[in-house]
Amino acid sequence: MSGAAPANDLPLLSATGVQVHFPIKRGVLIDRTVGHVKAVDGVDLEVRQGETLGVVGESGCGKSTLGRALLRLVEPTAGRVEFDGTDVTALDRSGLRRLRPRMQMIFQDPMASLDPRQSVGAALAEPIRAHGLAEGRAGRERRVRELLDAVGLPASAAGRFPHEFSGGQRQRVGIARALALSPDLVIADEPVSALDVSVQAQVVNLLVDLQRELGLTYVVIAHDLAVVRHMSDRVAVMYLGGVVEQGPSEEICREPLHPYTKALLSAVPVADPDVETVRERIILRGDLPSPADPPAGCRFHTRCPFARPDVCATERPVLREVTPGRTVACHFTETINGGESTK
């Protein structure tokens, strides 16, 4: 769970109807658009100050694209993103630049996001200098030492280059760079998936400790439900560009309501061998459909063991609240989970 102070009721970040559609181009002399990849297709989210929202789903579901759209690292095709009352999607370049220090990102692959020709000290000092957050070279160097210390690296690391570090150390540098401008919101895109298992827990614990110390708000994007459960206050489960279930982390992990969430959780190993041998496993049939040509109706119906073709193949379910704080996009939630059908 999050190590921050209890979140207040006002959202720091909210997304309404966010879409990111990438055009598919064809042609030799003249490019023409023949379709769109619907990477994100109508997502609503809220993140309250001081909490951690986990966004989980299999590869290709659009969660990383969503994270970038929330910061406008990619431009949303439609929808609205608000940060602390400001419409991020309506800002011009200068307005977005003024807001950037408060919204930062930790990338999945630190080696790809760090300049191999630039020392770690120079990489950390660059945003500080660009935004005028320290006076003179001495002030920037002092801030760099503070950042390295905060992520558990020695001051001598400032003079070294990315290739001289291990994967876990490079991710610590990526975390330090995200913290360089003292942000309020950090979006962590698969922050530990590229690391050895022995290092993952160290980095996760570091993120939790930093949240507690600095009062950060996190959006953690991951496909590993164990990481999300440990770090998150609430979870949003994505499938093929849309959110299919949202709710408190412990409740979703203990009692998932959507068939896709059930399948994701059934794939997570359990440490108890007695439980592991008897628990139900849900094997999804078929492959993830293409986001360039998603199925009609419920996008999960082609793989869902509970789908009914007369409804699921024709009507797209909307997120609706089924219990306080729990929303799910499924036509037959109550039937699947032992209650009465809503249809």
Rank of each mutant, 00 (worst) to 15 (best):
D274Q: 11
V204K: 00
T217K: 10
V37N: 06
G338H: 03
S232W: 03
L91T: 07
R177D: 06
V268N: 14
G95P: 10
R143K: 12
R142H: 13
A329L: 02
V88N: 04
P295G: 08
E146C: 03
D293E: 10
H131S: 11
R142S: 15
G54M: 09
I128R: 02
Q246R: 09
E213P: 06
G247F: 09
G62A: 09
S266K: 05
D310G: 15
T33H: 13
R32A: 03
R281W: 11
P23D: 14
N8V: 05
G62F: 01
P110V: 00
R212I: 08
C330N: 09
L53Y: 14
A150W: 01
T89W: 02
A69Q: 00
D274R: 11
G3T: 10
C253P: 02
P76H: 07
K63L: 06
I30E: 14
R316S: 03
L45P: 00
V74T: 13
A176G: 08
R98A: 06
V220L: 06
A78V: 10
D233C: 04
G167S: 09
L240H: 05
V278F: 00
V278S: 08
L12C: 07
P116Q: 06
G338W: 07
A112R: 08
P127H: 04
L284V: 09
R299L: 01
C330H: 02
V37W: 09
P317N: 11
G27T: 01
I30R: 14
T217G: 10
T277Q: 15
L207F: 01
Y218M: 05
D87C: 04
D293F: 08
S2E: 04
A130G: 03
